[in-house]
Every structure is written in structure tokens, then in C-alpha cells.
Design a binder for these strands. Structure first.
Length: 190
DNA sequence: TGGGCGATTCGCT
DNA sequence: GCGAATCGCCCAC
């Protein structure tokens, strides 16, 4: 089977709500470790739930920069979360990567996560960062070159849509996208 | 400068 | 289902 084409940087020069569903089914590797993206959430500058909503700070500065790069932040003082910056310079919108179906580097992911259950390796934003070795080191790095390897989805997948998770503002906005029927989602879509 | 809180996860009940 | 872990961010004081 041929390797799917690399996702180019201009893929991200569009509305976060167009980019997010197209990331479902794409393959994300970090230093050769990762799998198929099965769950994402969209966050736009004008969205009260977005980190960029109240303006630029040191933490979210990358969101305000060029699209096509990684925005990584620490969550609850413990976990890392990985986002892809979208739209245009200053737009400050991003897609949060929430879950991955592990396909490459399973042994290393199991070691990093300290567990063997494949379904639990990358079924959450903090989990997948631990499994893929993503940290603040990756903040601001371009997604179209090493250590990232991002490949386009194949055939258009069946996508489920629902409200986002773990937020307190704009909770009803249906900006969570998932791969229909995937066993690797962070939570079931209701 | 201090304190409340979070785009989470895990273990225990 | 619930609460602890854990700490940087951010705004009110």
C-alpha cells in the first residue's frame, strides 16, 4: 500500500471548522511513533472556550503566529496537550488533537504510558502526548517536517460530531469531531 | 503578589 | 461516579 501524501503547510490556511473534520483519518507520527487521528476539537479566537479568546499571552503566543505549526500547553499542571494552529497569522485558532488509533511504535508507546491496553494508549489529549513523547519542546515547531510526519486521510471517513469535552464555556457548540465507530475515542459521542 | 482554576487522568468506591 | 494530583497561567487585590 502506498504511503498517503504528506499534509502540506497550506492545508492549515483555512477555517478551523473546515480543517478539523479533515484531520479525522489523517496519520500523525512524531519521531515515527503515532497513528490515525480519530478525534479532534476546534477552537477559534472568537470562541470563549479558546485560550486565545482573551488575547495574546506568553503561553498562547504560538496560536497568534503562522498556521501549520504545533501549539503545546500544559494541562492541569500535569499533562501536555497538542494543537495544530490554523487559518492565518493572527487568527489565533487551533485544532486540539484528542485521540489517536495507535499504529506505529506500539512498544515504545506502551513503555511511555506504562500500560499495555492498546485502546488506552492514546484515547485522550494528555495520553497521546505522553505516548508520542510530545512536550513543550514541540511548541511552535512546523508540522510539515521532522519530528512530525503528517499524512492525509484516504477515503473520506464517516464522521461523528458533538459538543466538546472538559470545558465550561460555549459547552453546547458542536465542535468535536470523531471517527464513526472508532474504539479509540476518548469518550463516546452522545 | 496571592490564590483560584483548568481544552486531564487515574485510582478507588 | 468522585476526588486527588499538580503547577503554570492569569487576574484581582
Amino acid at each position: 500500500m502506498a504511503t498517503p501524501p504528506k499534509i502540506r503547510r497550506d492545508f492549515f490556511d483555512r477555517s478551523v471548522h473546515r480543517v478539523a473534520p479533515e484531520l479525522i483519518g489523517a496519520t500523525l507520527l512524531v519521531d515515527g511513533v503515532g497513528g490515525v487521528i480519530v478525534e479532534v476539537e476546534a477552537y477559534h479566537h472568537t470562541d470563549p472556550a479558546a485560550h486565545s479568546y482573551t488575547g495574546r499571552t506568553e503561553r498562547n503566543a504560538v496560536m497568534f503566529g503562522a498556521p501549520g505549526v504545533a501549539y503545546v500547553y500544559r494541562s492541569y499542571g500535569i499533562h501536555w496537550c497538542l494543537n495544530f494552529v490554523c487559518e492565518a497569522e493572527g487568527s489565533a485558532s487551533a485544532v486540539l488533537i484528542r485521540a489517536i488509533e495507535p499504529t506505529a511504535g506500539l512498544a515504545l508507546m506502551r513503555r511511555r504510558r506504562g500500560l499495555s491496553d492498546e485502546r488506552a494508549l492514546c484515547s485522550g489529549p494528555g495520553k497521546l502526548c505522553q505516548a508520542l513523547g510530545v512536550s513543550i519542546r514541540h511548541n511552535g515547531l512546523a508540522l510539515d517536517r521532522a519530528p512530525f510526519d503528517l499524512r492525509a486521510r484516504g477515503a473520506r471517513p464517516e464522521i461523528v460530531i458533538g459538543p466538546r469535552i472538559g470545558i465550561t464555556k460555549a459547552v453546547e457548540q458542536p465542535w468535536r469531531y470523531g471517527l464513526q465507530g472508532s474504539r479509540f475515542l476518548s469518550k463516546v459521542f452522545r
